[in-house]
């Protein structure tokens, strides 16, 4: 499992993360929820050692960070991270030449699933197709954990549906998945655990199915309870959903 133990992050005097503790177990889909700027992306960057923590520790299957971790954890950011002049085929070859866990067969299958043309250059792709390429490159690795940053952000409805299908497919089966998102509706019925954040702190962590059965509440209902002092932010969520 991925463990975050008392993780703090400061930018100058500003506290971005203030004592974050949670785990991402294998075989479950967890989601980090919170408005923009609460530190969701920072957490993912910390897990991937793309940003140093100010204090605290992150363990992956009990190990501290080392280069081999990237064959264990895959990160799918919400920005284009492939060279614009590369063709999709070249980006796949690049991954194949560095990652032991690159699964070429699965990558080819995903090309078909996402209806991507491997001779297309990255710079000619729409935002939705860039997101699909990111997913392809991240999910074609036979890793134990997958981190996804805002996979639905700025994506059209048809692409959203395709991305949602990924979460119910064999592509994430038995993996520990951590998603950050605003789009609660898209993931309501696929996530196992939800972690609600605000101002760099975790406000609540719960098992979605358990809450549905015991309290009859959805993720949005719990968000209303938790964020009630911040009703203006709740309306932002409603706005985002439109």
């Amino acid at each position: 499992m991925i463990e975050l133990i008392d993780v703090h992050k400061k930018y100058g005097r500003k506290k971005v993360l203030d004592g974050i503790n949670f785990t991402v177990p294998k075989g479950e889909i967890s989601t980090l929820i919170g408005v923009n700027g609460v530190g969701k992306t920072t957490i993912l960057n910390h897990i991937m050692n793309l940003q140093p923590v100010t204090k605290g520790e992150i363990l992956i299957d009990g190990e501290k960070h080392h280069p081999g971790i990237y064959d264990k954890v895959s990160f799918i950011p919400d920005a284009a991270i492939t060279l614009p002049e590369m063709r999709i085929r070249e980006a796949m070859d690049f991954m194949g030449s560095f990652y032991e866990t690159w699964n070429k067969k699965r990558a080819e299958e995903m090309l078909g699933f996402f209806r991507l043309n491997k001779d297309d250059k990255i710079k000619t792709l729409s935002k939705g197709n860039v997101a699909k390429v990111n997913l392809l490159l991240g999910l074609a690795l036979d890793v134990d954990y997958v981190l996804m940053d805002e996979p639905f952000s700025g994506i059209d409805i048809f692409t959203r549906e395709q991305i949602s299908e990924v979460f119910t497919s064999y592509l994430v089966e038995n993996k520990g998945v951590l998603i950050t998102t605003h789009e609660i509706n898209e993931i309501e019925f696929i996530v196992d655990r939800a972690i609600l954040m605000d101002e760099g702190k975790i406000l609540r962590e719960f098992n979605v199915e358990e809450i549905r059965e015991t309290e009859g509440k959805s993720i949005i209902d719990i968000m209303r309870d938790v964020y009630s002092p911040y009703s203006d932010r709740i309306s932002n969520y409603e706005f985002d959903k439109q």
């Binding site: 991937m48 050692n49 793309l50 280069p67 081999g68 971790i69 990237y70 064959d71 990160f75 950011p77 920005a79 284009a80 991270i81 492939t82 060279l83 614009p84 690049f94 560095f98 990652y99 032991e100 990255i122 710079k123």
Partner: peptide, 11 residues
């Protein structure tokens, strides 16, 4: 495109 993500995440 922020290629540094990919470079830093190489194993």
């Amino acid at each position: 495109n922020t290629f540094i993500y990919r470079l830093l995440m190489l194993p």
